[in-house]
Design a protein around this nucleic acid. Structure first.
Lengths: 229, 229
DNA sequence: CGAGGGATTGATCAAGCTCAACGACAGTGG
DNA sequence: CCACTGTCGTTGAGCTTGATCAATCCCTCG
């Protein structure tokens, strides 16, 4: 991991695209970005580990990362697949709690890093930041709710279908945000089952898989898989 | 559902026990409780329904309720089993979003009800309330994380074991917060499988089930079920 | 007493897991 | 340039687990 200090403008552009800072105007964003350093990560480095103190806020701006826990049988469970531009572990950072899970890069990438102190200063000056934080937490909560619901959708195919529909919301095509391996884990499936679910969906003409590129061919057919039986 | 206005003192006692209002002193709590009405519910009444506007904050003070979603196949998934004294749907209420799920009483019970306006007024006067809210959301998020992890613990017995260990944290004994039916659903199990898991754990001498009363007999034996195999 | 809901038990079935083998591909080093 | 290696994805075969279906039991309550 290397730390660099590129121009504030570059950093500001990333910060601007974050919902949580959307109430700050340009000069304020620039002030904040003064405090931010940019970090470049190699694949499989840890952004943070479980139980570490959350002394800074990392904002993923390039590459992908996964957030995962280690279960009691030693296996790992992918909780979240992170794509840019997103804050990671922001709640723990604001609250000063230790991180509840691990976060590891799955590709090379880069983050913006803001020290917790600067963050708290800013949120005191701009109380709306904490409302944005609440909003963000709330969406994350709803995501988790969806995950739980999806996991209790027993059929592997329907789990995959709901996932695809969710990801493809903005367009007919998207790129799997991680190795199929990881996506399978995120969906609570073994790689083999995931693979079979894929071939079922694509042999049915609902979607097309080309490597990590997923194309929705027939949305109605895809939706029909949501109803088991 | 009946609305009553008991003495502010009675209401205040309930409000006091909520983490979210723990920064308010007695006179402030009393002011808040002036705004609160007390509602008495019959079994299976709805505290709120999915997509309803969250115009008030309900605080369960007696009885139990479940929060659940309706899945696309028509079945229901229990997201949360609520016991007193707890706020329900507080995030939606603060943010003014519609409720993301249904909440229904599973017994007769009572709630304190605070209009959204009064709540927002108070949180403006006492900004720490929003930090408490964030803290509460954060714990809920961690709960969900645990649920997701638990659901990917494939074995029914280990799922039940982790649940029991979690519930019995404060003492060797606890009461199932709902019908076994509902608890099974919450754990992502069919009632039959749940029942079999129970008999496996109790025939192994790890726990004892007497109706809805669960007693942990041998914590180590119980923990040994966490490791599949 | 009978009715109805919940819980349990038994028998069968199917979906996904496991294990194993194989193919595709990238990176490495001779 | 070509073996060698390791990772990832796919495919096949058999097995295990929980779901399903059905019957029974046990309460509570009218």
């Amino acid at each position: 991991m290397k730390i660099l200090k590129p121009s504030p403008e570059i950093k500001a552009r990333h910060l601007q695209s974050l919902e949580i800072f959307s109430d700050l105007d340009k000069t304020e964003i620039l002030m904040l970005s003064e405090k931010a350093s940019m970090r470049f990560w190699d694949k499989s480095e840890f952004l943070f580990r479980r139980d570490e103190a959350a002394e800074k806020l990392e904002i993923l701006v390039e590459g992908t990362a996964t957030v995962y826990s280690i279960l009691n049988d030693g296996s790992q469970k992918v909780i979240h697949i992170v794509s840019p531009v997103t804050t990671v572990g922001e709640a723990a950072c604001f609250l000063g709690r230790p991180f509840p899970a691990n976060c590891q890069m799955t590709t090379d990438g880069a983050t913006l890093c803001i020290p917790r102190n600067s963050l708290l200063e800013f949120s005191q000056q701009y109380p709306d930041i904490s409302w944005k934080l609440i909003g963000g937490l709330y969406s994350r909560l709803r995501e988790f709710k969806n995950t739980v619901e999806n996991h209790s959708n027993k059929s592997a195919v329907s789990r995959l279908a709901t996932y695809i529909i969710g990801e493809a919301r903005h367009g007919k095509e998207f790129i799997l945000p991680a190795k199929k391996n990881q996506v399978a884990n995120f969906l609570g499936l073994r790689p083999e089952s995931f693979s079979r679910a894929i071939s079922q969906l694509s042999s049915d003409g609902a979607v097309e898989f080309d490597g990590n590129i997923v194309t929705v061919i027939d949305i109605h057919r895809l939706e029909s898989f949501l109803f088991p039986e």
